[in-house]
């Protein structure tokens, strides 16, 4: 059973919500697919039980012993990635044009490490996560790997909560395809709304059960109503409206999940949202 939390726009509170839900669920595992800002694991100290090197890209490699310094490769490279026979791996996009033109056959495309992947055991279940190399990109391939990793160490009826990638591109598609339900966390701002619509269309396209949560709904009530109306018209379920709450910032600073602040408004709203989500999930599967 997989629930993916996504947001379209960054900074909408996706990680806070994903974490809260995983605290509220009983038998739970997590995958942090927000690989550019992998903050989900910070809340629980854990032990890494598996570490692997992940090769997400290809880069050109010049064999210096064969290279005769003719510079044919430098001239063909559209990314200015070769200088004096040395590849700048930050600039190389792995297109292989240099490999094709090298008269000495001195260049090859080789797998390039873009991340370490970890499976970390914490008091609150296992978490699958990645630590990206500097300047590397989170690709759909890496997301697929992180989801595969967590499935390998969990039972079928464990709830897997995925902190999805922001945006609506390839990594997001990899975050949601094949998952049982998606929770979209949006906020009532113009850019939030635009991204929300795009990400919802994506979920519709893949025919996944789509749930929606409006975070900080009270900072712009008119916009929140528009989102609600939009959900109704498109038959997606609005499962929660979370009020703006300074305790959330405090919770991040104290690395204590928001649901443990009893008087927090956000906590109360998240808890009642979880009840709604459970109902929807139970409708698809009755085993947890």
């Amino acid at each position: 059973m997989e629930l993916t939390v996504i947001s379209g726009k960054g900074g909408t509170g996706k990680t806070t919500i994903a974490l809260s839900l995983s605290e509220l669920a009983k038998d739970v595992a997590k995958a942090d697919c927000d690989v550019d800002a992998p903050n989900l694991y910070l809340f629980h100290k854990g032990i890494d039980i598996k570490k692997e090197v992940f090769y997400g890209e290809k880069k050109a490699v010049i064999n210096k012993e064969i290279c005769n310094g003719c510079k044919t490769c430098e001239n063909i490279c559209r990314f200015d990635a070769i200088e004096n026979g040395i590849i700048n791996s930050f600039k190389c996009e792995g297109c292989g044009a240099c490999v094709l033109v090298c008269p000495q056959n001195a260049i090859t495309l080789e797998d390039y490490k873009t991340a370490n992947t970890y499976i970390t055991k914490t008091k609150k279940g296992v978490i699958s996560r990645a630590d990206m190399e500097i300047g590397a990109e989170g690709s759909g391939k890496l997301i697929t790997k992180l989801r595969q990793n967590i499935r390998e160490v969990t039972e079928d009826n464990t709830l897997i909560i995925i902190d999805g990638s922001p945006g609506i591109g390839c990594p997001v598609i990899s975050s949601i395809t094949g998952s049982d339900a998606v929770l979209i966390v949006t906020e009532p701002t113009q850019s939030g709304m635009e991204d929300f619509i795009r990400v919802m269309e994506l979920c519709n396209h893949f025919g996944i059960l789509t749930l929606v949560c409006i975070n900080k709904y009270d900072i712009n009530k008119v916009m929140s109503e528009n989102i609600e109306k939009f959900c109704e018209e498109n038959h997606v379920h609005l499962v929660g409206k979370i009020p703006y709450d300074d305790t959330v910032i405090k919770s991040i600073n104290e690395l204590k999940p928001i649901i443990y602040y009893e008087n927090s408004m956000a906590n109360k709203a998240i808890r009642s949202m979880w009840e709604n989500i459970k109902e929807h999930i139970n409708q698809i599967k009755n085993n947890f």
Binding site: I76, R78, F79, E93, C95, G96, A97, L100, V101
Partner: peptide
């Protein structure tokens, strides 16, 4: 497409 021109080269 990354505009790398590898297709033209080949």
């Amino acid at each position: 497409c990354h505009s790398c021109h590898a297709c033209k080269i080949v």
